[in-house]
Amino acid sequence: MVASAHASPSTAPISITLRVWRQAGPNQPGKFVEYPAKDLNPNMSFLEMLDVVNDELERKGEDPIAFAHDCREGICGTCSLVINGKPHGPHRGVASCQTYMRSFADGDVIVVEPFRAKPFPVIKDLISDRGAFDQIQQAGGFITARAGSAPDANAIPVPKDNADLAMDAAQCIGCGACVAACKNASAMLFVAAKVSHLGLLPQGQAERDQRVLAMVSKMDELGFGNCTNQYECSAACPKLISHDFIARMNRDYIGATFRQAFRPKSLSTAGGA
């Protein structure tokens, strides 16, 4: 053997104790319940460990631990666990599903909870309702372009730097960790990511003001808190979306508010004959 990079990762099994939030349904009292998980392969993902625990519960006819998941590769934004107090677990820049048991030591007690925030009520066990995010998108997170009406894609060049920055923002997976991490339950990072993604592109200019105003107003209406610049959000974000986008959105918002107040408006919105 030459390079150490090639050495296979350790596969010595570990055993841990899970302390899991169990809650039968919305508005019901919940509590922590302990489950042992023995002889785990450290290369197992955290969710696979939960599968193993659940298989055991089901075998005994007990209700398995409900948790949200789908793609299991960090892109769909479904998984949403608070592991040892941290949304998406101990590592930066990954989602819960990309957390592996090798991050834990034999004998550890691991506390698992759902994402908690006032606008994200718990549905069952580790699952909370993040439908509020969809409502914010519906308020303005789009560019109006009906199918069939678009010009040739290369008719509007986009400077590469802008396209790259837009893509940085667009990578948001809508998981809600930013909200769960924030003591104010602010959704600023999520909203800023969408506002910046669309606002950085020439295609997004026509509705730019309207978009930021509508999304921010919806966010407030749904009970998300204010941003007090703690930046817990970007630290918990699995896509490491930068809080610079929040500053960017604030500028957009102020500008839009100003323009909205002084912009001349056409009196006629009717179509011709």
Binding site: F142, I143, A145, A147, G148, S149, A150, P151, A153, I156, P157, V158, P159, K160, A163, D164, A166, M167, A170, H197, L198, L201, Q203, G204
Partner: peptide
Amino acid sequence: QCAALGVPFAR
């Protein structure tokens, strides 16, 4: 259509 919708394609 996708460029019009703001899909940030590589450039």
